[in-house]
């Protein structure tokens, strides 16, 4: 299945999906040293986002979140790609400074969890 969206940060990667139905605040919801979800209200708490295709509706919370994405990248714990329903400034800025391919405008409920996904952010589509 192929779904078209909008390219936000270029790049092409293949990675396994981790789909969060809840919005994510990188400051507070993600451990920047381990790359693990620590938000106690998220059913995915404890799961790793490292080298995964991280899929969630949109970012929320502090603008420091952009820097947390950067810290994950510097610690080699960043996601391989980010897919959002709707991009906003915190996540987009974090993905740009960390060279993480990113697409938005994707109906994320159609993407299954833990499945290998091709993210083509040069052209703006995902395939699985």
């Amino acid at each position: 299945m192929r779904i078209n969206g909008n390219k936000i940060v270029p790049g092409i990667v293949k990675a396994f999906s981790i789909v969060s139905e809840k919005p994510i605040s990188f400051l507070g919801d993600i451990d920047p040293k381990k790359g693990v979800i620590i938000d106690k209200y998220n059913p995915l708490k404890g799961e790793s986002i490292v080298n995964k295709c991280l899929i969630f509706p949109y970012g929320k919370g502090s603008t420091v979140g952009s820097y947390i994405i950067y810290q994950l990248y510097k610690n080699n714990k960043a996601p391989a790609a980010i897919i959002n329903k709707k991009a906003e400034a915190i996540i987009a800025v974090g993905a740009i400074i960390s060279d993480i391919p990113m697409i938005d405008g994707i109906p994320i409920e159609k993407i299954p969890n833990n499945t290998e996904i091709l993210v083509n952010a040069n052209e703006g589509y995902v395939e699985f």
């Binding site: 420091v64 820097y67 947390i68 950067y70 810290q71 400074i97």
Partner: peptide
């Protein structure tokens, strides 16, 4: 430019 205090941006912002 905001995000200057080490209290708010932490090691992540410093490194950036």
């Amino acid at each position: 430019i905001a995000g200057v205090s080490y209290k708010t941006i932490g090691d992540a912002g410093l490194e950036f």
